[in-house]
Design a protein around this nucleic acid. Structure first.
Lengths: 260, 260
DNA sequence: CGCACAATTGAAGCAGCTCAAAATAAGTGG
DNA sequence: CCACTTATTTTGAGCTGCTTCAATTGTGCG
């Protein structure tokens, strides 16, 4: 993906051309990544932000014995290590799911941007808050939904998020994610994910072939997962709509360092 | 709890006396609540924030058939509906667990405060980000830990959070929460929570009587839950330490309204 | 073609659930 | 302060959704 397209996605969708150009200029370089590597590791104190241009990543945490929980999927347009911009330290890791590339934006440059362009600060704030809302729904999914409901729900969420950044083709979307990784996201085993996907196929709700998901029956899938998209704040997250947040974060004056 | 104590807790622990007084003055009134009522409902567009002074509440979401997932516990010092200050709308509900009371702070007053006192803006921002980090650990708990591990982990977290606001007595803390509510937090059934608590008791890790938890074996409990407290950012969350965040949110100029 | 990884299927086990009842605690009105 | 009511905790027994273990089939790629 060319750098000129950096700001066509996600939370930057509703910025002005000037603001988008400022973000493009802020990217000091592009870094490509392969599948299954860590973009950011647990405990890191990054000094830059990574804006995903292409490819998919995920936020995750590990237990000592290797169990892994995926906390969110990171798609083009997402700044995958934005929490560390505010908190200074990563309390989780960011792993890639496919190959792709990211734009590197130094924290200090982003800081300046937020001071010059309040709407950019607003975009970052909004991203943090919508991520938190998505995490809340993720908790409900893990804690109180059956495997079948969970899977249906996640597929709905993925379609909607991908559609917001123009990465769907009608009812289809690419899901270049192994069933083992879906399992890590859903809190299930890979074997069971396989069986559930089979059920969803046999129910006629979806079709799966070659890493592409086709949603055949939107109402059915939405119903199966009891999916309501309000938590994604679609009216604001989408590039089709302008922001209406009343309140947003802005950076403080420089100089205070995070962590001893 | 008298209003003079409002700011002794939680994210306000490290503000200056002047800033604390400003928050005290911002509370237009105190409202008391009983157990098991909604402080804020799903879909609300609150115009004020509710700072818990005493008692316990929780954030939760319901499924249509009544299944409930508790997303976080809200303790004295927490502003339970802070996300709505930024996003305008509640994507979840806040229910009380005990009786208690809250200080009501109108959004517009809080907005002014954040503009006058950047450190207050920083405190709010920090609260949002630590809540998000806590949610990440909550997801791991729900998705990848066994019932025994989950319960041990949650008890560790609760002790630490309560201790940060001075609500522990040594290794003891009051947990005025029914097992059914613990179950909603842990993604389990009440019956199973009961059995797990029995196991924790019989392992000698905790003692339970009359709504009071005593942690007999900190190492054992920490180990059982594989608990590492870094996600709570204890160095900053505690009133014992001053903030070091580099970047914080501040409000934008007034006038832009949230939601159509 | 053949290697490595992913998807699929089967069979058996178990963690946690459901249903049901008893014991204990907590209110509550007299 | 007691008797009565109601909620909560506790325990048992059986069940099931998901897991574990293991083997087979399919698939992308050098």
């Amino acid at each position: 993906m060319p750098i000129s397209l950096i700001c066509h996605f996600g939370q930057f969708g509703w910025l002005s051309p000037e603001e988008k150009q400022a973000i493009r200029d802020a990217a000091t370089r592009i870094r490509s990544f392969g599948p299954d590597e860590d973009l950011v590791s647990l405990g890191d104190h990054p000094t830059d932000c990574k804006l995903i241009l292409s490819g998919y990543a995920c936020a995750y945490k590990l237990l000592f014995d290797g169990r892994r929980q995926i906390l969110s999927f990171q798609i083009p347009g997402d700044i995958c290590d934005l929490p560390a911009f505010f908190l200074g330290r990563m309390d989780h890791a960011i792993g890639t799911l496919t190959s792709g590339n990211v734009a590197i934006i130094p924290h200090e440059v982003l800081l300046d941007l937020t001071q010059i362009y309040p709407r950019i600060a607003r975009a970052l704030s909004h991203s943090i808050l919508v991520d938190a809302a998505t995490a809340r729904e993720w908790m409900v999914r893990l804690g109180r939904r059956t495997a079948y409901e969970r899977t249906a729900h996640l597929l709905c969420e993925l379609w909607l998020r991908l559609d917001a950044v123009g990465l769907t083709q009608g009812d289809n979307f690419k899901l270049p994610v192994t069933q083992a990784r879906l399992a890590d996201a859903l809190g299930l085993t890979p074997v069971h994910v396989n069986r559930i996907l089979k059920q969803l196929r046999e129910s006629g709700l979806i079709t799966l072939h070659g890493g592409t998901v086709k949603i055949n029956d939107w109402d059915g899938l939405r119903n199966a997962g009891e999916f309501t998209p309000d938590y994604l704040y679609p009216g604001q997250n989408s590039r089709l709509q302008r922001p209406r947040s009343r309140v947003v974060p802005q950076p403080e004056p420089r100089g205070v360092r995070q962590e001893a």
